[in-house]
């Protein structure tokens, strides 16, 4: 039994992990898709800008000491009539630099978006995985709950949860808790997508023979679900997560725009748009336009990236 295998040509030194990743089909497809690359660059710039806002932003919009009310309503790239200061993207009514508020606002938007998706993902994966693997009445109950929730628009569910949470938080903590309530509200409104996708994928995987092999060895169901099945269903989860991120950012902006989301003390992009909206017809267009354009760019490029990811990870479309 020595002669039976054709050794794969293996004399080249093993390339590093990074090199392997760069040469993989996945990266090959990425490098061939201009849309994906541009989206990625836009997302990367925006995320980096948000993360390093304190270093990049010329002003700290939340430090009253640096604010000068005289700087209010300065148009972009024009020196202020009183102080002579120039702001790239202008200032709002209180003299806050719009560029800086956008950077800080994006921090809130992205944090809420990522955290909400993470929450939705954890709930959805647990629900979908257990529903599909355990089956029976448990599966029926979980999936009916999911179906019922799906008949309501996600934003409505989020508002409902937001309202309830607001009702039960003491008034003095409300502003502090607002961000976390937002995360829970958006996360709970979005788990259904994950649960359905994970359930479908798990139903396929659980009948594959490697799962049977683990069962007959005597592995427990949690080990099989988490160590055997979960790693094999992560591709669709990744796609849903990316698309959900765009939706979560928009959901947060919508809630904040409606005044039920991030408080004015911690303005997110949605809050900024709500504030800016009031000045649109009085001529201070920049207070609305720049935050809105940033939100659009962020949501659109994350969404495009998700679309591309779906195609790239779907072997049938190759």
């Amino acid at each position: 039994m020595t002669d039976q295998t054709t050794p794969l040509p293996d004399n080249t030194p093993a390339p590093g992990r990074l090199a392997l990743f760069w040469q993989s089909d996945f990266m090959y497809q990425f490098r061939r898709s201009p849309v994906a690359m541009i989206s990625f660059i836009v997302v990367a710039i925006l995320v980096l800008g948000a993360v390093f806002a304190p270093l990049i932003a010329p002003y700290d919009p939340f430090d009253p000491a640096t604010l000068n009310l005289m700087n209010g309503f300065t148009a972009p790239m024009e020196p202020n009539a009183f102080t002579g200061d120039t702001f790239w993207l202008g200032t709002d009514d209180q003299g806050r630099d719009v560029f800086s508020t956008i950077l800080y606002g994006m921090r809130i938007s992205l944090f809420v978006g990522f955290a909400a998706v993470l929450l939705a993902m954890i709930i959805g994966i647990l629900a979908g995985l257990t529903a599909a693997y355990l089956g029976g009445w448990y599966e029926t109950v979980i999936m009916r709950i999911a179906d019922v929730q799906l008949t309501f628009p996600a934003i409505l569910v989020a508002m409902l949860i937001f309202g309830i949470a607001k009702g039960i938080t003491p008034i003095e903590y409300r502003d502090q808790m607002a961000i976390w309530v937002l995360i829970i509200a958006i996360g709970l409104s979005d788990w259904v997508q994950f649960a359905r996708v994970v359930r479908g994928a798990t139903l396929v995987e659980k009948n594959r023979e490697y799962v049977q092999a683990a069962r007959l060895i005597g592995r427990g169901k949690w080990f099989i679900m988490l160590r055997h099945i979960l790693p094999n269903i992560l591709s669709p989860v990744l796609v849903i997560a990316t698309i959900s991120l765009a939706l979560a950012i928009i959901a947060e902006a919508t809630l904040s725009f409606l005044g039920v989301g991030a408080p004015p003390t911690q303005p997110s992009l949605g809050t900024l748009i709500r504030i800016g909206q009031g000045f649109l017809f009085s001529g201070e267009w920049w207070i609305l336009l720049f935050p809105a354009a940033t939100l659009l760019a962020l949501a659109l490029s994350v969404n495009l990236l998700g679309d591309w990811l779906r195609d790239a990870l779907n072997p049938k479309l190759r």
């Binding site: 594959r208 023979e209 049977q212 007959l216 055997h228 094999n232």
Partner: peptide, 12 residues
């Protein structure tokens, strides 16, 4: 122990 039919599906 068991050996399955499909060698593509029986290994994780």
């Amino acid at each position: 122990q068991m050996i399955f039919q499909d060698p593509y599906a029986s290994l994780n």
